[in-house]
Amino acid sequence: MIFMRNKIASALVCIYMLVTPCHAEEIDAQKLLEQVDDNLWANTKFITGRLIIDNGRKVRTLVQDSWMEGVDRSYSHYKSPAREKGTKMLKIAGKLWMYTPRTDRKILIAGHLLRQSMMGSDLSYEDMMEDHKLSRSYSATHEGFEELSGTRCAILKLVARDKKTTYQTRKVWISPKRKTVLKEERFAKSGKLLKRIMFKDYEQIGERLFPRTMVFRDMLKENTQTTYKFDVIKFDVEIPKKYFSQSILKR
């Protein structure tokens, strides 16, 4: 009798495993987020990129070179259009200095000014400066799976560990296989969707998979989007010390 009961139980388990394979797939959300961070993160980075700002009436393209070191330091130099040429931005810890050649002055963009739109784009200075590891700032929980552009993605809900974090909740669509983010949504405290970011054109760069294109959309605005295209990406490059000094903020 006991033998019969064990047999039935084993059969049920086998049937369950065959019929519902996806339910059986276990995702460690936090670990997956850490793996995504590890893929994207490098001690130093150099990027030549284009920021294509479409405000619904006009499209502007800004070309910039950026050097980044860790989470605290970055330096950007705008090369075009003519109006923005020579503009420089230096981020050191929580402070951002901006130099414009037309005024020949550097301005400290701190505190609430960081929340303003950066050069009319869908990103605030704060968004642009944001370069922290998501796995450190957020607790992740797995919410399910969804097919996105032919890739099966795990949906992770991220809840901020600190009350002072700008976006208290986020949702990320991650390919568990490639450890890459395909989509991210940022929410207000109330749960209202504020921003959507699409990560596209992933390419193998060294040992990492890195998106060549990021499309930012402010979901509260209509017909606006900002596309960040990375034309050149180099990881673990040597950055001259002068790039992270205020003395670089001059003609």
Binding site: K163, K164, T166, Y167, Q168, A188, K189, S190, K192
Partner: peptide, 8 residues
Amino acid sequence: KGGAVDAR
């Protein structure tokens, strides 16, 4: 007060 963004 903490700087978290909210919308309604």
